Amino acid sequence: MEKIQYPPSPRGQHVDNYHGEIVSDPYRWLEDPQSADTQAWIQAQNALTFEFLESIPERSQI
């Protein structure tokens, strides 16, 4: 089986300050499901997923 090449998941620079505790949230951008970047990421992930699922020979039997 070939090694799966996942679409890139860019890391942002977002950080929150919770009562003086700095917490990095590099994937905060994914929390907006309507953004163009999130939509593109979802489409790329779905394309990879469905390509893999369709390649399973036993899938039609399941």
Rank of each mutant, 00 (worst) to 15 (best):
Q39L: 15
Q45M: 12
V15I: 11
P57T: 02
D16L: 10
T38A: 08
F50N: 09
A44Y: 06
P10Q: 02
A44L: 04
G12C: 01
K3T: 10
S9K: 11
G20D: 03
A36G: 09
D32E: 10
E21C: 02
Y27P: 03
D32V: 05
P26I: 00
D16N: 08
P33Q: 04
P33M: 07
D25C: 08
Q34E: 15
L30K: 06
E21T: 15
E21P: 05
P8C: 02
E21D: 13
P7E: 01
D16F: 12
Q45I: 00
D16R: 08
E58V: 06
E51P: 04
A44I: 06
D32Y: 07
H14K: 10
Q5N: 13
T38L: 04
E51M: 08
R59L: 05
R11P: 01
S55L: 02
V23N: 02
A40S: 14
I56W: 01
Y6F: 15
S35D: 03
D37A: 15
L48I: 03
A44P: 04
L30G: 05
R11W: 05
P33R: 01
F52A: 11
R59Q: 11
E58G: 10
S55M: 06
H14S: 12
H19D: 14
Q45S: 12
D16E: 14
S24C: 10
M1D: 07
Y18R: 11
Q13S: 13
P8I: 04
N46L: 15
P26F: 00
I62Y: 11
R59P: 07
H14E: 14
Q13E: 14
I62N: 04
I22G: 07
Q34F: 12
I22P: 07
E31H: 03
Y18V: 06
H19K: 15
N17T: 09
F50T: 10
G20V: 07
E21V: 14
E21N: 11
G12N: 02
E2P: 15
T38S: 04
R11A: 14
L30A: 10
S9T: 14
T38H: 04
N17S: 13
R28D: 01
M1R: 10
I62P: 05
E31G: 13
E54C: 07
M1Y: 08
R28N: 05
P8W: 04
T49G: 09
E31F: 10
K3W: 09
D37Y: 01
W29I: 02
P10E: 02
I56E: 01
F50I: 14
Q5V: 11
P8Y: 09
D32G: 09
D16W: 03
P10W: 05
Q13V: 10
F50R: 10
S55I: 00
Q61N: 12
G20R: 10
E2Q: 13
P57M: 02
A40M: 02
S24F: 13
H19G: 06
Q45T: 07
Q61R: 10
Q34L: 14
E58I: 11
N17L: 10
F52R: 11
A47W: 02
L53W: 06
E54V: 06
Y6Q: 05
I62C: 09
P10H: 09
Q5M: 12
P26M: 00
D25Q: 14
G20F: 07
K3S: 07
I4Q: 06
G20C: 06
